[in-house]
C-alpha cells in the first residue's frame, strides 16, 4: 500500500462539511473574503465509486459578468484546496450563471492555463493575482496592527516587531508580544494577527526578513512613517470593504432581475 492510500483509509470519505471547511481559506481576490462566507458555494457532491473519491463543487458569483480572471482564480483555487485532501482523488468545478462559464469550466477542469482558456486575454493572471494579493495583505495588516494598538503598543514599536517577538504559546485566542526595546510582554487578540500571518506566509513574505510588517511597496516601515503606512493600510481595507458593498448590492439586484 502506498502512503497515500493509507492516509485515505485513515481519513475516510470526506463529508460535504469537511469539503466546505477546506474551501474556507479560498477568497474572492477582489474582496479578500472567503468564498464560503460570501455564499458563492451552491452545492458540494462527494461520490465514491470503485475506490475513487470524486468531489464536485458548484459555484455562483454575485454577477454574471464578474471578471473572468477572478472567476478563474476562485474556481482553480477551490479545486486545488479540495484536491489537497489526500482522501480526495479528483475535484471538478461547475461555475454557474456566468457569461464565461463554458471557458472557465472547460479550462479549470482540464487544467489549462488561463491564457489557453482565454486566447483573447492580453495578459495571464499572474500579475493581477499578485497585485490583489498585495492589497489583501496590506488590508489584513490594518486589522493586525489595530489589535496590537489595542494591546497597548505604539505604532513605532509595532513597526519594529519581528515574527520572533510573537509568542503563540499564550491561550489559543491570544498572542503574547515581546515589546521591542522594552523588557516586558503584552497580550493581544490573535484573530486578526493570525489572519494577517496566514496571508503573509502564503506570499512568502518572510523569506528575506523576519520583520512583521511592511509598507505597501514592500519595504520595512521607518518608525516616523508608521502612522502614514497604517493609514494607507486602512485605506486598502476600506476599499475592499466598499467594493464588497457594491458586489453585495449587485448580487441582490441580480436575484430580482426582470426578464424584460
Amino acid at each position: 500500500m502506498t502512503p497515500e492510500s493509507t492516509d485515505k483509509q485513515a481519513d475516510g470519505i470526506p463529508t460535504p462539511d469537511r469539503i466546505r471547511s477546506v474551501l474556507e481559506p479560498v477568497t474572492d481576490p477582489e474582496l479578500d473574503r472567503s468564498i464560503v462566507t460570501l455564499g458563492y458555494i451552491d452545492d458540494i457532491r462527494v461520490e465514491d465509486s470503485e475506490n475513487t473519491t470524486h468531489v464536485h463543487v458548484a459555484v455562483t458569483l454575485p454577477t454574471a459578468w464578474c471578471s473572468p480572471a477572478f472567476a478563474w482564480m476562485m474556481t482553480a483555487d477551490a479545486r486545488d484546496a479540495v484536491e489537497a485532501l489526500t482522501s480526495v482523488d479528483n475535484c471538478t468545478i461547475e461555475l454557474r450563471e456566468h457569461m464565461h462559464k463554458t471557458e472557465v469550466n472547460h479550462g479549470v477542469n482540464n487544467r489549462l492555463s488561463f491564457a489557453e482558456a482565454f486566447p483573447d486575454a492580453k495578459d495571464g493572471i499572474t500579475d493581477l493575482r499578485s497585485t490583489l494579493d498585495e492589497k489583501a495583505v496590506i488590508s489584513r495588516q490594518y486589522g493586525a496592527v489595530e489589535s496590537l494598538l489595542d494591546a497597548g503598543l505604539t505604532l513605532e514599536q509595532i513597526a519594529r516587531l519581528e515574527r520572533s517577538d510573537l509568542n503563540q504559546d499564550a491561550a489559543e485566542d491570544r498572542i503574547a508580544v515581546d515589546v521591542p526595546g522594552a523588557a516586558f510582554t503584552v497580550v493581544a487578540s490573535a484573530a486578526e494577527i493570525d489572519r494577517y500571518l496566514a496571508k503573509a506566509r502564503s506570499l512568502d513574505y518572510f523569506a528575506d526578513s523576519d520583520r512583521l510588517f511592511r509598507t505597501p511597496d514592500g519595504d520595512p516601515i521607518a518608525p516616523d512613517n508608521a502612522k502614514l503606512i497604517h493609514r494607507r493600510a486602512r485605506l486598502a481595507q476600506v476599499n475592499m470593504d466598499g467594493q464588497g458593498g457594491v458586489c453585495d448590492a449587485l448580487h441582490q439586484a441580480r436575484q430580482s432581475e426582470p426578464s424584460d
Binding site: 477582489e30 494607507r232 485605506l235 476600506v238 476599499n239 466598499g242 467594493q243 457594491v246
Partner: peptide, 10 residues
C-alpha cells in the same frame, strides 16, 4: 476609482 479607491486616494 472604486474598486481602486486606495490607488485613487494615494
Amino acid at each position: 476609482g472604486l474598486p481602486r479607491l486606495d490607488d485613487f486616494c494615494w
